[in-house]
Design a binder for these strands. Structure first.
Lengths: 71, 71
DNA sequence: TAAAAATGATCTTCTGTAGAGCAAATTAGG
DNA sequence: CCTAATTTGCTCTACAGAAGATCATTTTTA
């Protein structure tokens, strides 16, 4: 599975979802889904803007984790 | 922008798009778009299967590059 | 040289993000 | 406290693009 670290990054920096939405133009609903990891599909443009805005790499935002449970 | 390194990885390993499609179950059209970097949106499940199959991290597959030209 | 496999392109279907709106919850002031 | 403003979660519609299938062309292989 793919783990999204948006909540951790925002928490560390004390940023709110609404801050990111306002500053990046990314839809707040999309950010909410990423935050709660209910996201299924994502625009590369969204990943790009988040990496730019947060100054992180794709790997710091999205991480592959071998799933023990499912599959 | 987000750079997709699928073509490089497949090239290095001499893997064909059809190999990956067959082995991972990922739609061949989607892999073709990734290969030619015309992909716009992607399922996290697709990223997950590619990382699993190719034994690479998300960061090795997708890389953020500060765009000099556009934006 | 012929058969098989791989690839690129196109079309339809269907899922999910984008975008907007609303209500509840949290925060900030007075 | 009480109220106003901000943030957040949820829902709905519209649109975009991946999934899946098909076909023609190119490449591979036997």
């Amino acid at each position: 599975m793919i783990k999204c670290h948006l909540s951790r990054v925002l928490g560390e920096r004390k940023l709110k979802i609404s801050d990111v939405a306002r500053d990046t133009g990314i839809n707040r609903g999309t950010l909410t889904r990423m935050y709660h990891e209910t996201l299924v599909r994502i625009d590369l443009e969204t990943i790009s803007r988040l990496c730019e805005y947060l100054s992180i790499s794709v790997g710091e935002l999205l991480e592959y984790q071998k799933s023990e449970n499912n599959l």
